[in-house]
Amino acid sequence: MILALRLSFRQWPVVLSFAVLAFVVLLVLAGPGIVPAEVRELAGDPWEPFGAEHLLGTDQLGRDLLARMLEGGRLTLFLASAVAVLSFVVGLAFGLLAAFLGGLMDTVLSRLMDIIMALPPLILAILVIALLGNSMPVLVGVLVVFEAPRVFRLARALAMEIMTEDFVTAARLRGEGIGWILAREIAPNAVVPLVAELAMRFVFALLFLSSLSFLGLGVPPPQADWGGMARENAPALGFGLPAPIVPAAAIAAVALAVNQIADWLVAASGRRAARRG
């Protein structure tokens, strides 16, 4: 790996972000083992406050909120990761291809991506989900279509820049195929900015997914992701109860943490570029 990333404690927001992210991920993965209470059982009254029995209180049906949060967290983080990785792979493949092939292929792909980016994502997503029903594959598919063009643009720009370097010319002169040049000559030199982009895609996927669920178009019940839980518990705000704040805070915390890490990666890649120039 050519990533020589160093992290000092002076960059405490980044360190904190890593800590928050690790905490949430571990908790969510260990989920069922931590909370003995049966999730689907009605364990208490609706919207009980924070307490010893139910650490984060109960939801609108009296289920343990912590248990629901852990269950919903798995779903949320899994869906957001799936969208980020898929859109990254799709965007990267087409971006590199467009840069390398150039000409008509590049024009067609680039304009197609421009068109997608010009469309209002939320409204279109609502339309598609209304037509196809809100299953998880549809949800992921729609999000990938809207996220991939951003990765495409970055991958294409990076590849275009790297392609002007003589080592790519040397590979072409050697007779190397397109696969080798893209995978071995170009991609490794674009790793850091692309990893940062992957992190950014995760943030946007998380927020988009949560928005859809909050609008009732996300994960179909009885399962609920964090966005869906915020929606279910939203009426509690009217009684001055904190239940919907918990999933909302979790979404915000994860989004902010990943965003910080992405920023740090971008800065690190900038330093690397400066050293090379």
Binding site: I2, E165, D166, F167, T169, A170, R184, E185, P188, N189, V191, R276
Partner: peptide, 12 residues
């Protein structure tokens, strides 16, 4: 090439 800086892939 003229400039070996860009003629050699920095990641290899």
């Amino acid at each position: 090439f003229q400039s070996a800086d860009t003629a050699l892939n920095p990641s290899q």
